[in-house]
Simulated assay, not measured.
Amino acid sequence: MKIRAAIARDKGAPLSLESIDLENPRADEILVKVAATGVCHTDLVVRDGMLPTPLPVVLGHEGAGVVEAVGAAITKVTPGDHVVMTFNSCGTCPSCRDHATTYCHEFFPRNFFATRVDGTSGLSKDGERVNGNFFGQSSFATHALCHEANVVKVPSDVPLELLGPLACGVQTGAGAVMNALRVSPGKSLAVFGTGSVGLSALMAAVVVGATTIIAVDTKPSRLSVAKALGATHTIDPTKVNPVEEIMRITGSGLNFALDTTGLPAVIRSAVESLGPRGACGILGASGPDAEIVLNETHFMSGGRRLIGIVEGESTPDTFIPMLIDLYRQGRFPFDKLVKFYTLDEINQAIHASETGEVIKPIVRMS
């Protein structure tokens, strides 16, 4: 079938809106008519050639839509179902068998290589291969092929166009708090970096009953949003030393810290802000060769922990519906982070994400 898609053809260049061909779903594939897709920092990193995803490629990995057709082997969903498309996994490796799919042994090839397992792509244009299957979906398009492993059925009474960011950014931040760090009532948490991931973590901290919630960012507008969403304190590290300020607020240091920036110097500050037995989660890296330097005595003697976290250690089939339930209850207002754009405006949406003008852009396909 003919579909409309935004294609990354040249490193760092604007995406090109084109009409391309999409194959019919294979036996193990699901065809989804995409309603909307969130714009994520990972899409921009790949567009800029910082990861080995081949060009030309259709990116997009926070898709939500309606199932249009299913392959013969599909039993999880049927045509007409509303779904969110999240990260892909193999389903058979030791991590997947342990229900830890975010650490799938094939996470990188299944999500970043933009190819089916057999090396083919379901996308083309006039005989030219267009790489697809990015995060098992390539949802910067009007239609996407995905898989049972990365499709989550969602209720039909919630605005579908809003739900895409739950697939990655929102689930990453909220899951880091709820699943990985397991923040409990009465504890303290500082979030370093208050983009969509950090603010999702902050909202999750409110839900689980953390009583000291500190937002750290250099953008006053982001700190204002953090305050409105439940931060008890905000810190601008350009004005005060964040470690000293956190120690002043907490007395003996944090129970938990979360870094969303991937910057080694910020990660060090987050770890130095921990009290004895405190834990810091990191959700990204500034580059493949980035290194973290810590004071060994401080780190070891206090029993402190540093934890890498992928996709919030979420089991999407249960975690995403839970976040939707919290949203319905008014306890997880992630809709306050978003701004909508049309597919024709996708490059404006990307620019708004890059500049920080918008916390979470969402591109509507219709």
Rank of each mutant, 00 (worst) to 15 (best):
P94I: 07
L162P: 00
S200E: 06
L181G: 01
D98A: 15
T78F: 05
D126Y: 08
F113W: 13
L123P: 00
V177H: 12
T115E: 15
V177E: 13
L199S: 06
F140D: 03
S139M: 04
M178G: 02
N88P: 02
G136Q: 04
L160E: 02
A100I: 12
S138M: 06
K76L: 10
A141W: 06
G169A: 08
E106L: 09
L199W: 04
A174E: 09
V84T: 13
V183I: 13
C104R: 11
G91Q: 01
C168N: 11
V191W: 10
K76Q: 11
P185H: 13
V84Y: 14
F192A: 07
D81E: 04
G91C: 06
L123G: 08
T172L: 12
K125Q: 15
G122S: 14
F113E: 13
N179W: 06
T101I: 10
G186S: 02
P159T: 04
D118R: 07
A149V: 04
K76H: 11
G91W: 06
K76A: 13
C90V: 02
T101Q: 15
G136L: 07
H99I: 03
Y103D: 07
G175L: 10
P109A: 05
G127S: 10
G136V: 01
A144Q: 01
A73Q: 05
V70T: 14
S89A: 14
G71Q: 05
T172C: 08
G164W: 12
N88V: 01
H82G: 10
S139G: 09
D157C: 04
S124N: 10
G119F: 06
G119R: 04
F107L: 07
G71F: 06
G186K: 12
G175D: 12
P79A: 15
V130L: 15
L163H: 13
L160I: 08
G195P: 02
S184R: 10
G80F: 06
V84D: 14
H143F: 10
K125I: 11
T194M: 09
T120M: 05
V130K: 12
A190V: 07
N88E: 09
T115Y: 07
V191C: 05
K187L: 03
R97M: 11
S139E: 10
S95P: 02
A73E: 14
L160M: 13
G127P: 01
S121T: 11
G175I: 12
G127E: 08
T172S: 12
S188Y: 09
G173S: 09
A144F: 06
P165T: 09
N133P: 00
Q137W: 04
L189S: 09
C96G: 05
V77C: 01
G119N: 08
A73F: 03
A144C: 06
G186V: 11
H99E: 11
S188C: 03
G122D: 12
A180C: 13
V191R: 09
S95L: 03
Q171M: 14
A73P: 00
G169D: 10
N150K: 04
P155L: 06
T75W: 03
H147A: 03
V117I: 12
H143N: 03
T115I: 03
C104V: 09
D98C: 00
R110E: 09
S200Y: 07
P79M: 15
T101R: 14
E148R: 06
V130T: 05
N150G: 11
K125M: 15
S196R: 05
L189P: 01
